[in-house]
Design a protein around this nucleic acid. Sequence first.
DNA 1: TAGATTGTTAATCGATTAACAATC
DNA 2: TAGATTGTTAATCGATTAACAATC
Lengths: 218, 218
Amino acid sequence: MKPVKISEAVVRRLPLYLQVLNDLHKRDVQTVSSQELGNKLDLNPAQIRKDLAYFGDFGRKGIGYDVTYLIEKIRQILKLDQPLFVALVGAGNLGRALSNYTTYLKDNMKITAIFDANPSIIGTQINSLTVQPIDALKETVIALNIRIGIITVPAVEAQSVADRFVEAGIEGILNFAPTVLRVPDDIRIHYADFTTELLSLAYYLDKEGNEENEPAMD
Amino acid sequence: MKPVKISEAVVRRLPLYLQVLNDLHKRDVQTVSSQELGNKLDLNPAQIRKDLAYFGDFGRKGIGYDVTYLIEKIRQILKLDQPLFVALVGAGNLGRALSNYTTYLKDNMKITAIFDANPSIIGTQINSLTVQPIDALKETVIALNIRIGIITVPAVEAQSVADRFVEAGIEGILNFAPTVLRVPDDIRIHYADFTTELLSLAYYLDKEGNEENEPAMD
DNA sequence: TAGATTGTTAATCGATTAACAATC
DNA sequence: TAGATTGTTAATCGATTAACAATC
């Protein structure tokens, strides 16, 4: 019916819309315009309207978008209207941090298994989950109907974890390790490597350090 | 001399190049072609050549790029040829994880101050740094010549931390909280919100859960 | 009715890719 | 010299934005 290909840029903005909408909902706001959404997210209103229109006519001319309805619709689009189970490999600091974070996500995503290679970590509890050995990955992923895998191991181990995820039939991977992963085309990979963001941030700093004062512009 | 504006897309790829180059360097590879880099990063070789050519003629026709030289050049471009000091606010799980991570970064970036609002965390040690009260932020940032701030506090507190960073004269912010921040135009903000990545990942999963088997394609 | 705001088309803008002369 | 690969221009592709008729 809708043969139009949705671009990645559009899909990546949907969670941002959801973020703001959830906030508005919490504050009992009933209706929001693309204008207001654009203000809050620093995005062009036309872009927001166009993004949403790819998926249906969710707004009302002259009125705007119903907050509750739009939340429901975006959840559906993102397939978050059903519980989605996630496995995490790498129970180090970052892994533990994410385990806490994502538990709080009310967005139907839940980490239901944690794995690690380190014998001294295996068997410990994180958020009521027992850390399992990596060898248990495939069996557990299948048994718990886990569809997304998070990788928080060092870069050198990331590919072998990805291989295990693929073998276990996972459909998507969120990789925190600073390395590009090789997986079959039908597996989706998103990268969450903050070192990239941090290093590129440095580019935008003012010139040569701030020991020297920059001359004023006027 | 070079009045060409460099796009964000280009700058964000530079750390990726650095990643692969560092790896090649470790394995004593002397020279690399745009073709090989493209293979490793899943990028078009022409794009890589074009990206690099914005900043100078770093390659040799018929040969490729000298690994060591290119690393040095990209470091210069990213202004990582000098030490760059970073402050972190939010000494929770994520903050602790990042403190460890970034310490290992040999790329001249170093977290040199950690802050938190929680009295029971203030005064504790993380990686030989003592967690300081937020009220000490401005003074410390100035004293230690800190130019980048990392925010790892809950979303509701993120804006007030950003305001403090701005007031302290920070030049760039890496925000892990899932919220858009308002800062003056001359302050650069990068977002490292993995919830966005995780939620958008769900969009690409196969249809309606995997209880039902999908019909095979052939 | 008048004001507001959507959905959508057309125009603009920007980024990626192909192609190739230059040259190591 | 022949093969390889850069730097760069031109062509293509895709994404953003402006504008406006439709309509609540």
